[in-house]
């Protein structure tokens, strides 16, 4: 089954950092495929990233590549797994364009049957939070699946499954994804990027015969240095979505050295200034 992993730019950049760890820790099996259209994203150009002390192994397969852009595609032939790395956020108001004009055509072009969306959040709407978890602190991951093969008329089923709660200020949906027992949430809101993505993937007529499943993996994190959250998420990805290979030894790329600044966080407070 051809699978595509799509990390969303979200709280603490945990999906991006986890994808970095996945790609660079398993760089012998992942290979760069191509740059994707970055028109809808904040501009970004950087050098080829690599694990410190090693060459840029991810880009071995291309000879003339010298710079990375905001959106790139990698492939693991062993698992028939495509991975998108998105290095900057989608521009304000262009989220729908991005889903319809970049992701949907990519899914069609690669004949992807299963899309895994990796997201992170500081918390979920009160109405969506699961309250009966045995130990809420130990459940940091939500996994929801949307089985499109169950849909006969995808667009109609999508409409039927919306069941938006009109009493709430935020529109909530608890039927599109079926969340696992241990998930910390039981639905999504219509303001979330994943909702727009599902809408455009299910409404692209050309994908009806191809795409069969969308899996939504959400990680509970807090703002700040999220490198450890990313490491934990990367090591749990295989358990949450078996299509993703397991990573035994994590290697962070050189670009991480600039993520949180070059100085230690200030600890002293003197006359109103952190020093």
């Amino acid at each position: 089954m051809t699978t595509l992993l799509l990390p969303l730019v979200s709280t603490g950049n945990v999906p991006q950092l986890s994808t970095d760890l996945l790609l660079h820790s398993l760089s012998p099996r992942f290979k760069f495929v191509q740059e994707l259209t970055s028109l809808h994203l904040y501009p970004f150009v950087g050098p080829l990233d690599h694990v410190p002390g090693q060459k840029a192994a991810l880009y071995d397969s291309v000879t003339d590549k010298r710079y990375t852009t905001a959106l790139e595609l990698f492939y693991d032939q062993q698992r028939d797994l495509y991975v998108v790395q998105q290095r900057s956020p989608v521009l304000q108001h262009y989220e729908n364009n991005f889903c319809k004009e970049v992701v949907a055509p990519l899914v069609k072009q690669l004949r992807v049957q299963h899309v895994i969306v990796l997201d992170s959040t500081e918390g979920v709407e009160e109405a969506l939070a699961r309250r009966n978890l045995p130990d809420p602190t130990s459940y940091r991951y939500s996994v929801g699946t949307c089985d499109l093969s169950e849909f006969e008329n995808v667009a109609q089923e999508f409409q039927d499954r919306l069941h938006i709660d009109e009493k709430s200020n935020t529109s909530l949906n608890t039927t599109l994804f079926r969340f696992s027992e241990t998930s910390f949430q039981n639905g999504i809101t219509t303001e979330q990027f994943v909702f727009k993505l599902c809408y455009h993937l299910t409404h692209a007529a050309s994908l009806h015969a191809v795409l069969t499943k969308i899996t939504y993996v959400n990680v509970l994190v807090q703002e700040g240095d999220n490198s450890e959250d990313a490491a934990a998420a990367c090591q749990n990805l295989h358990r949450l979505a078996p299509e993703i290979p397991s990573v035994s030894e994590l290697h962070a790329p050189a670009s991480w050295s600039g993520v949180y600044g070059v100085r230690d966080a200030p600890t002293a407070f003197d006359e109103g200034l952190y020093i």
Partner: peptide, 30 residues
């Protein structure tokens, strides 16, 4: 490719470029 001046350094991680410069360069690269 080739660099404008081979005597000058090029980007090394974690350096990166944003703003209009990156907008134009991205499209040229893609």
């Amino acid at each position: 490719l080739p660099a404008y001046d081979a005597n000058l350094p090029t980007l090394i991680p974690p350096e990166f470029i944003t703003s209009f410069t990156a907008s134009i360069l991205t499209q040229l690269i893609v």
